[in-house]
Write a protein that binds this DNA or RNA. Structure first.
Lengths: 190, 190
DNA sequence: TAAAAAACTTGAACTACTTCAAGAAATGCA
DNA sequence: TGCATTTCTTGAAGTAGTTCAAGTTTTTTA
């Protein structure tokens, strides 16, 4: 049941059998119901989540009271508020399940201890977070250079199933335009 | 002369004397003249840079032929194209010195070998990249929730010296608005 | 220190989006 | 199954920004 995580780790590093056991003994599967939060604004985030099944999102509530999705986390993604996690400061974000979701939730103190014990695991997280950072650099590029319509088509071309999977208004805010505008793009009225 | 790097590492992990020696023997200072590039679009990025003195920037050339700065790297920052670096794919970015700059440039093969040998260094890079990712999450939040004018004032309040230090049109594109608009904000004409 | 190059400013015209409001369609739940 | 809730659509009016073009100021270089 932790297989997806060990498969993912195996893509980047080789863990010894003893390390796998050690890690396994610290893991716990948790189920999060659709719309349930695992983090709300103002809380300090002390947990990191690996999505086994389902979908999580990170969002904020803007000055007009509207939700804006900043990040999704689907199968085989880690999701957390890294700034709150590392600096022990109150989070600016909400972390919520978009669907009924199964995650492996690892507490910071548990994870930090594991990382010191298992250098390969440290390596895994280093590689994954650098790659994720690289993806974020590309995202900034797309946000800066493409029009709203281009962003929609680009995203839809790359992740067609995902666009079907979550509400349109979440995709719209993730791509930084209004839900109404997305509706018009889809209808070809732009 | 590598002191800034060892100071920075020391903030996050403790390196043994032998590790410091090992690392030191692999480092090399390099000087980059203002406007000189260390990476251009289409090249594979095989190097990671730590800024000792000066300022680097990552930028793209958009469809209208204009430069857009996506990221700055000042003293004590690491800068590279992480996606190109990790996936061995051609870069979408330019990396250029904004001022005459001194960097420690570490080749990927050298660094990867060092990281396997020195687990604390792996830990250092894991922590730094997760923190940087956290900062990027906040940046996305600001881009999504603040108006151009708010972004300018927020940035200017937090980094007043930096705003003086680099050309306005680079700051403008980093904050995702036009140089002309920034000029009008500064003149109070908005 | 003059000339060239780079950076900044200004106003006028334009446009890619947002906002609002209301209704229609789809989905979830008792 | 039917009612409530959530999500999506549509059009009209508004606006936060861009683009363009030209002039001014500042910085760099020979």
């Amino acid at each position: 049941m932790y297989k997806p995580l060990f498969d993912h780790i195996g893509k980047f590093v080789n863990l010894e059998a003893s390390d796998i056991d050690k890690l396994k003994s610290c893991l716990e599967l948790s189920k999060i119901k659709k719309k349930e939060h695992v983090l709300i604004e103002g809380q300090v985030c002390n947990t990191i989540y690996f999505v086994i099944k389902g979908c999580m999102r990170q969002y904020i509530i803007n000055s007009k009271g509207a939700e804006q999705t900043l990040q999704f986390g689907i199968e085989n993604w880690w999701i957390t508020d890294y700034l709150s996690y590392h600096n022990h400061v109150p989070s600016s974000f909400y972390l919520q399940a978009v669907e009924n979701t199964e995650v492996i939730a690892i507490d910071k103190t548990v994870l930090e201890a594991l990382l010191t014990e298992i250098p390969s695991l440290e390596r895994y997280f280093r590689i994954v977070s650098q790659k994720t950072f690289g993806a974020m650099q590309m995202r900034i590029k797309f946000l800066f250079t493409m029009s709203a319509e281009e962003r929609y088509h680009h995203f839809n071309d790359h992740f067609p199933e995902f666009v079907q999977r979550v509400p349109q208004y979440m995709i719209a805010s993730y791509l930084d335009f209004s839900a109404e505008f997305m509706s018009k793009i889809r209808a070809g009225k732009i």
